[in-house]
């Protein structure tokens, strides 16, 4: 059980902000924003690591590109795109409400931006499938 945490003086614990029982959109947005931030930073490093393959010449790069055609990498791309869409559009909500815009309608704003994220994701999927 979790009570040892309850009594400890330090309070920075993911188990708290990730505990979404009974919470509303805002807490979900907060948790997802943090998780996508961590994910995107990790992705950035992986991306830089992958780019460093260029230094090993065209054959290494081309064989890597061939590997990325696998469905696993497509799924990974989809996850990254979802993360980017969520993080950037939720960021717009945080900035707008943070300067006093749409404070009373923050839930509607969040839902609308998430609907926009879903639409953009579907459009991206459509474009990807058309392009093959």
């Amino acid at each position: 059980m979790k009570v040892a945490e309850e009594a400890a003086p330090g309070l920075r614990r993911p188990s708290r902000w990730l505990d979404l029982r009974g919470r509303h959109e805002g807490a979900w947005a907060y948790a997802l924003n943090r998780l996508t931030a961590i994910g995107l930073i990790a992705y950035l490093y992986v991306h830089l690591g992958v780019l460093s393959l260029l230094a090993h010449g065209p054959s290494t790069w081309n064989s890597f590109l061939a590997t990325t055609k696998a469905p696993f990498f497509t799924a990974l791309d989809a996850v990254v795109l979802l993360g980017v869409l969520f993080h950037s559009l939720n960021g717009i909500r945080v900035v707008l409400t943070g300067v006093g815009v749409a404070v009373r309608w923050h839930r509607l704003l969040f839902r609308s931006l998430m609907a926009l994220a879903a639409i953009l994701f579907l459009v991206a999927g459509l474009l990807w499938s058309i392009r093959g």
Binding site: H24, E25, G26, Y30, N33, R93, H106
Partner: peptide
């Protein structure tokens, strides 16, 4: 504050 609005809710 990171605009979760949980306090108000």
């Amino acid at each position: 504050c990171h605009s979760s609005f949980e306090c108000t809710a």
